[in-house]
């Protein structure tokens, strides 16, 4: 997929923090339209904070997040919600809510003062259920579903919102590897079929390299590298960003870069010599 150069969502010189503590510092990021952008980085590098800032959940201390050239904080929140969708890391599942009801709540920004249910709502909810494969669960209670099913329902809710841009904070957390791949395939489909611009924070570096058109590596509140995965996922940058010795090879399945971490017990030098007997922690320093 070709990455266009235009960007409707832009973080311009954004500094975000909690009180005195600055988490994201003077950061610039232009989210390429129609692409999948994935933000990676070590724990506490500010990637989730940046995403929350772009979703207007946090107000920048300085700088601005621009959506179509206007600072999101100055726009009506309903207006923004019709263009920019968000799936947070841990949304609350209300007790007893059915799948169709939950997905229907994604229509909130499109509904009037009295929230009348229109045929447009019906169509959007139906589409969202079909695309995510949750139509057959429509009348089930969300709290009875498995983790993977539940996450698909939440994605369906975000789809029903019918926005051009969708931000997701670690959408694969708590899912096993099969469901992680299923979830990311679903988002890639969404990007390709509807042209939805997707921005997500992911923990799994190799999956990020596979699914990202545009990969952003963050460290200590700043962008260290960004671009196509093969330019960002290099041994040097991975060592810098995660503090991890590693080797990068080409993923035989996808052709994208694949990071092989080198732990204390699995170093090329050790492998060449004696067998890597696991010992207790800190043994190397004795």
């Amino acid at each position: 997929m070709s990455v266009s150069t235009s960007a409707r969502l832009v973080a311009a010189d954004v500094t975000i923090g909690y009180g005195e503590r600055v988490v994201v510092e003077a950061l610039d990021l232009a989210v390429p339209d129609g692409a999948v952008t994935v933000i990676v980085g070590a724990n506490a590098c500010g990637k989730s904070t940046l995403l929350r800032g772009m979703a207007r959940l946090l107000r920048p201390q300085s700088g601005a997040v621009l959506l179509d050239g206007v600072a999101v904080h100055t726009r009506s929140t309903r207006d923004v919600a019709r263009t920019l969708g968000l799936l947070p890391q841990q949304p609350i599942t209300p007790e007893g809510i059915t799948v169709v009801d939950l997905v229907g709540r994604g229509r909130h920004p499109h509904q009037g003062l009295l929230g009348r249910w229109t045929s447009a709502d019906e169509r959007a909810v139906t589409d969202a259920l079909v695309v995510t494969g949750t139509l057959d669960l429509a009348d089930r209670a969300v709290d009875e579903l498995s983790g993977g099913q539940r996450q698909r329902v939440w994605i369906a809710m975000a789809l029903a919102q019918d926005t051009d841009l969708l931000l997701l904070d670690e959408p694969t957390t708590y899912l096993d590897v099969a469901h992680q791949v299923e979830m990311l395939d679903l988002l890639a489909d969404l990007n390709r079929n509807r042209g939805t611009t997707i921005v997500m924070v992911l923990h799994e570096l190799n999956l990020a390299a596979r699914y990202a058109d545009h990969l952003v590596a963050m460290k200590a509140g700043r962008v260290v590298a960004e671009g196509a995965p093969h330019t960002v996922v290099t041994e040097e940058i991975v060592r810098d960003v995660f503090g991890l010795d590693n080797r990068v090879i080409t993923d035989p399945v996808s052709g994208t870069p694949l990071v092989l971490p080198a732990g204390r017990h699995h170093r090329p030098s050790l492998l060449a010599g004696k067998s890597p007997t696991p010992e207790y922690e800190g043994a190397e320093y004795l």
Binding site: A55, T77, L87, P88, I92, P94
Partner: peptide
Amino acid sequence: VLSRSLRVTQLGDDLATGLGAR
């Protein structure tokens, strides 16, 4: 009139903002 927003504030503060609740 206001109670309509309960439908989204129930989903947590983040989603309430994301869905444009006042």
